[in-house]
């Protein structure tokens, strides 16, 4: 039994959720890592400190810079057929590549796993997290994506414990071509791994009004999030959306402001350690899952909170 974790990264840095995926993989046995990039060195320097893994396989190729699913899936299918488990983080990258790989290998993907019951049995949320399904796999190869908020991070050591080995060669695809990216620039922590998230909803009323929340977020060193309603209204960028079809977060503190609390939003944040809700409607469903609720006008409460924190 061999387990492979496909490392998620941006060619310079490790995507933090990879550490949670490795932790999950260690529950399955014999973990190797795979880094596909145009420049693997910096990423490997982070990976060699992770405990309880065997090999760090790399393949350095300019084509991997853009992480196209066609290239990544083909490469893994050709070189890692003999593995029992292949794990990805449930990031936009993992969600793009893992099912394609499963299609190539004729295996049923097991997405968004939140618990490993035993080596063939996994729990995953369905219906926006309103139910949890326990699935027993009959696959020969399990291709799994891991919900990072459900697992701890893998342990690291001060010493170099991993060994880096080159593997395989890539035949690049001629189906797709990367053009460019328009990335949201932000000095704030990354939404899915932040300690504190400040999220706004339709109650904010406009893009300008979000500045009220951003001030609070910056005072707390928090990431910014939003409900689907706020994103659909064009107040904030798409990649701020928290929920069933957006990002899943579980920070230590989630501050929901002007968010009513539709089930699709709750699906993305209800595993946060502490939730506070600020909404002028005291009947808002967000209060039914908040540890602390404050029924007050957000335009009064949020600036007051910001000024009183130090």
């Amino acid at each position: 039994m061999k387990t492979l974790v496909v490392v998620d990264h941006n060619n310079n840095k490790l995507e933090k959720s990879t550490l949670n995926t490795i932790k999950a993989a260690i529950e399955l046995e014999n973990v190797d890592l795979l880094v596909l990039s145009d420049s693997c060195k910096d990423i490997c320097n982070e990976l060699i400190h992770i405990k309880n893994i065997n090999n760090i396989f790399i393949n350095e190729n300019d084509a991997f810079k853009n992480q196209l699913a066609e290239d990544t899936a083909n490469f893994i299918a050709e070189n890692f057929k003999d593995y029992t488990n292949i794990l990805f983080s449930n990031t936009s990258n993992g969600k793009n590549v893992a099912p394609r790989l499963a299609g190539l290998l004729d295996t049923m993907i097991i997405p968004d796993v939140i618990e490993i019951v035993d080596k063939q049995t996994f729990k995953r949320p369905i219906y926006a997290g309103n139910a949890i399904a326990t699935c027993k796999s009959k696959n020969k190869i399990n291709i799994i994506t891991i919900r990072s908020t459900a697992f701890e991070e893998a342990e690291t050591s001060d010493e170099n414990v991993g060994e880096v080995k080159e593997i395989g060669s890539l035949t690049t695809n001629n189906l797709t071509k990367y053009l460019n990216s328009e990335l949201t620039k932000s000095e704030r922590p990354e939404l899915t791994s932040a300690d504190i998230v400040v999220s706004g909803g339709r109650g904010l009323g406009s893009a300008e009004n979000f500045q009220v929340l951003e001030k609070l977020a910056d005072k707390l060193g928090a990431a910014m999030g939003a409900s689907r309603a706020a994103v659909d209204a064009g107040y904030v960028p798409n990649d701020w959306q928290v929920g069933q079809t957006g990002k899943i977060v579980a920070p230590n503190l989630y501050i929901a402001v002007g968010i009513s609390g539709a089930i699709q939003h709750l699906a993305g944040m209800k595993d946060s350690k502490v939730i506070i809700g600020i909404n002028k409607d005291e009947e808002a469903p967000i209060f039914s899952i908040s540890d602390y609720g404050l029924a007050e006008d957000l335009f009064k409460a949020v600036p007051e909170m910001e000024s009183k924190l130090n």
């Binding site: 797709t176 071509k177 990367y178 053009l179 990216s181 328009e182 990002k247």
Partner: peptide, 14 residues
């Protein structure tokens, strides 16, 4: 234009 974690990625597909 694809929605990815950090923003939008533009690709061209045959």
């Amino acid at each position: 234009g694809r929605e990815i974690d950090g923003g939008i990625e533009n690709i061209e597909v045959n």
